[in-house]
Write a protein that binds this DNA or RNA. Structure first.
Length: 378
RNA sequence: UCCCCGGUAACUCAAUGGUAGAGUAACUCCCUGUUAAGGAGUGAGUUGUAGGUUCGAGUCCUACCCGGGGAG
């Protein structure tokens, strides 16, 4: 069961309020979707993720295939039972790992750039540790070095076995260093894979196609037109959008204009809290980001007054809560000083408290922006 | 009182008589569909003190100071 309904369109921006229904419950959109790569929002159990305001989670096909393997998850009753999460679940296809374990690893960089790069990856280039072919991608297991292959068929099969409510088509997330020629070839491959994923679809799970195209608006629009014409239940928007932050809003807005209006759009892997308003105003319904847990474990908290690195010594004597205007349990009971002490001592609880606050803060930020759309304020 | 061992960056320790280094901590910056409880960078020293030998001493010699151990 899958349905998406737009409840309200803003007359001030492309923002829209909606409700997405799955067999495991509804999602009020636009919504932030926390990342639970290995079937857990890092440092938290599923109840805590829910308490922090999460409506849905997104797990990863590649990671769960490697450990514990989809067969074990299925025998445990499927992903929902396995991780004791009764709400909507998504699985990402492993397409991002084509980048992160490929060119991303080679060049020691993430998918976002801050300035114009000096070197470019050109057509025909291959990453050092993986091989990208027409059919899919050859990886080596980080566990035992065994050869493994992930393509559209394989990804869809694993995702079916895992049993999330929403699945994603297998794509190539191109490196931000890719030149136009590489991007065009990669895009054709991603479009081909999208079709092959549709051939493997099942009736129990929704399938979202993924739009790519890098920072090139024309390629983005071409991708949105091609993927948008395919019978997906929704669409993921992947990759990067240029080193200038304003280009994200420009490109995402343009893509939302050319994707089917009645279907949900999920912005993949983007979402620092200061960008939420732009993301909403661009017409996005769902988006996920590792930021709350990733930054939390590294000691950075997001607050209404900006980011703070609680590992810094000056926070040890700080008796204030992480964010005075936050309603989360961490801010209710614990001080920056305590969390700082735990983080500086490498206590796992410090990472957890920071992660939990961050997650709550981001979910609350999304709820607040939904409220603003409701009140014609966004 | 004597004997032995030691004293080098904030901490723990390196350095055949030839430019004093590392790890940790500190500080700064970074992290966006998790290769990440991670990464990059910076500052950091009268080598216990005072002499001596030497072209050159953290290193060898003498005295003293401090710490640890042993003998009596």
């Amino acid at each position: 069961m899958f349905a998406f309904r737009v409840l309200k369109r803003s007359n001030r921006s492309r923002a829209r309020l909606g409700i997405l229904k799955t067999a495991h419950g509804e999602i009020e959109t636009p919504a932030f979707v926390p990342v639970a790569t290995r079937a857990s929002v890092r440092t938290m159990d599923s109840d805590e993720a829910a308490k922090a305001g999460s409506q849905a989670l997104i797990c990863n096909t590649y990671h769960l295939h490697i450990a514990p393997g989809e067969a074990i998850v299925r025998k445990a009753g499927g992903l929902h039972d396995f991780m004791h999460w009764n709400g909507p679940l998504m699985t990402d296809s492993g397409g991002f790992q084509v980048f992160s374990l490929g060119f991303g690893s080679d060049h020691g960089m993430g998918k976002m750039l801050k300035e114009e790069p000096e070197r470019r990856i050109t057509e025909g280039a291959q990453p050092m540790h993986i091989e990208i072919t027409e059919d899919g991608v050859h990886f080596r297991s980080p566990v035992d070095g065994a050869r493994m292959f992930l393509g559209p068929k394989e990804s869809m099969h694993i995702q079916k076995t895992l049993g999330a409510d929403i699945t994603f088509a297998f794509d190539e997330c191109p490196s931000p260093l890719s030149d136009r020629a590489y991007l065009k070839t990669s895009l054709e491959r991603t479009h081909l894979w999208a079709k092959q994923c549709l051939d493997e679809r099942n009736t129990k799970q929704a399938l979202f196609g993924i739009v790519q195209g890098g920072a090139h608006k024309d390629l983005r629009l071409e991708s949105a037109r091609i993927i948008g014409a395919m019978p997906f239940e929704g669409f993921g928007i992947g990759g990067e959008f240029g080193y200038d932050k304003r280009s994200l809003k420009r490109i995402v807005s343009a893509m939302c204009d050319s994707l089917p209006k009645e279907k949900p759009r999920h912005l993949l892997g983007v979402g620092h809290p200061e960008d939420f308003a732009h993301i909403f105003a661009s017409g996005i319904d769902l988006f996920d980001c590792i930021a709350p847990t990733h930054y939390g474990r590294h000691g950075t908290i997001f607050t209404s007054r900006g980011r703070f690195d609680l590992r810094k010594e000056r926070f040890l004597k700080d008796r204030k809560p992480p964010d005075a205007s936050c309603k989360c349990e961490v801010c209710k009971y614990y001080s920056r000083g305590y969390i700082s002490h735990l983080l500086r001592s490498h206590e796992l609880t410090g990472m957890k408290l920071a992660s939990y606050h961050n997650l709550y803060f981001l979910n609350a930020q999304a709820a607040f922006l939904r409220h603003r759309i409701k009140n014609d304020d966004l």
